[in-house]
Amino acid sequence: MIWRRMALIFLVLVGLSAVLAPKVAPYSYSEQFRDSPNAPPGGKFLLGTDDMGRDRFSRLLYATAVSVTLAPAAAALSVLLALVVCAFHGRVLSGLTTIGMSIPWMFLFIILRAELPLNTAPEVSVVLTFALMGVAGWAGPARVLSGSIREMMEAGWMLHARSAGIARWRIAAVYAWPHLRSVAAAQFRALAPAYVLAEASLGLLGLGVAEPVPSWGNLLRDLQHPDMVRENPALLAPLVLLMLCLLALEAFSVRESVQ
């Protein structure tokens, strides 16, 4: 119980700091203190500054706002789409998921970026990027969910329920959903962080969150340079935060399922 409560408190805190980032952050995410680039943590800057003299702590707060809201939303979208698609399970669906998992979706993002006007506000393009990520990611969870459904259709209780003449929607809502829920939740928990990271790789193609807007993804990109991390361990802050969030989410759901 204590774990669940701690997890809840932590998640609420993260959520609050994300919502209140503009109020809580000591500086704007784009303000450049050009006299103190790469400042060490402490003093004026809690986590130090990056190479353009921007406050890492403020950037982390804003990044949290971006990633904590959008990545889970995109993950939820994928799982939801997968569930909808699974309603029409059958040969065509399995073919579609195969194709969906195999084609290079990256080009869809390139096309999206090309179709967006260049002066689109960064916030809008970020939301669209995550939305597209959510849409493009339906195939993986659909694959797993349809596997579960197929298995469920063979289960004894399902045959009983069907032979007893219970309405289809009732079977789905009352009997099938509780079974699917844990699978869907697991997919969601795996996808949300995957999307945080995917945004980082899309950033390399200019399709993620562009300068100067921060996101966990583009802050995590700094980890690619091992010597930079050695010099300033504060670079690990987004990683630690991401991990704690996942952990809290986990602690939360573990309890839920045990109950």
Binding site: I110, R113, A114, L118, N119, T120, A121, P122, G203, L205, G206, L207, A210, E211, P212
Partner: peptide, 10 residues
């Protein structure tokens, strides 16, 4: 100024 980073092809 709105910065847009693109891959070389685009």
């Amino acid at each position: 100024v709105n910065i847009v980073t693109l891959d070389m092809g685009s």
